[in-house]
Nucleic acid binder design. Sequence first.
DNA 1: TAGGTAAGTGGAGCAACTCTCCACTTACAG
DNA 2: CTGTAAGTGGAGAGTTGCTCCACTTACCTA
Lengths: 191, 191
Amino acid sequence: MTDDPPLRADARHNRDKILAAAEDIFLERGAAVSMNEVARHAGVGIGTLYRRFPTREDLLAAAYSDRFAAFAEGMRLRAEEADPLSVLRTYLEELVRHTVVYRGFATSLGIVLKTGTAGCIATTAVGQRLLQTARDAGRVRADLGFDDLVCVATAISLTVEQGEGAPARIAHLVSVFMEGIAVRPPGPAAS
Amino acid sequence: MTDDPPLRADARHNRDKILAAAEDIFLERGAAVSMNEVARHAGVGIGTLYRRFPTREDLLAAAYSDRFAAFAEGMRLRAEEADPLSVLRTYLEELVRHTVVYRGFATSLGIVLKTGTAGCIATTAVGQRLLQTARDAGRVRADLGFDDLVCVATAISLTVEQGEGAPARIAHLVSVFMEGIAVRPPGPAAS
DNA sequence: TAGGTAAGTGGAGCAACTCTCCACTTACAG
DNA sequence: CTGTAAGTGGAGAGTTGCTCCACTTACCTA
């Protein structure tokens, strides 16, 4: 969409330093770490940081871009699988798994996905496509939107973060969302 | 649990002023408003506010206590109704409805419910009881805990907040979680 | 009714944060 | 080599959350 003018060599170098430092420090101290600290850790001035990444979400999105791009590509390859519900479940589980990599990232997920980073665009696009496929196959309620999926991923990430044992809990909560709370009435088992 | 010593008359009066101001200002500006502003609006010093409510969650919980207490009492009266699923659905809907009263409260719901306020204790207790009843009747997944319900309520509150038209959307999302995302296999319609 | 005292008060002040602005520096095209 | 547009860093303004403590006051006791 926006093809920004190419960066000068020194600027590009600083950008890389910032991203490397952000990755480090977000992993270690969570996504709410102060911008000053990121700048100091990267060895650049605070002004430089803000010039390149005007908001925290921009920085988070950039730091996540590769991760999200790889995730989206992986899901794209599975998009044509036989069972669209199972692919959708995997998508949700993975999205949460990536979200909880940085502690405190969950609350920003919705905003970050809208920043327009390559990885975020790809993640959104493939998610919408998986949902559409499942909907077309009549396997998913017609009134379910992609925003609902993001909402669910956010909530699960939030609880997983502030609770203890993670991976099993993610699968469990995704399953609650997929299968519902109520027990299915015992009918003829359809495939 | 903790039966704190009774407050002096002036302290009690200030506490009431703070709660009234908090209610006002949370309604108008959301749950993230600054503590300074709450104190100013209440006409007390910031020190007084912090002495009485050491954390924002404590203040939120206190401001919500009456609301939650009334809600819990209402649900308690319906606990013996014939259909435990329908009561549980109502519980979820109401919990969300109360949560979205203050914009930005959703993310704190889990923490606030654990603060030990009378209303919060009652709300938790009645929710656990409704869930237990539904579980005993085999109408709800056996692996579903109260924390999961809170997680669901958080998720719904989050999307409702940032979306538009509210009450229908709440009912819709609650239904998504109650019945699941997947379309039911077309079988003989069980009641 | 007075007086001692523990409880309560308010706000100055500190530390930490976000973000802007601009005087200086530097890469690079011509 | 040089002009200049792009880039830099950090001082500083404006907000917060929260503490601390010199003062004030309600309430018990005699």
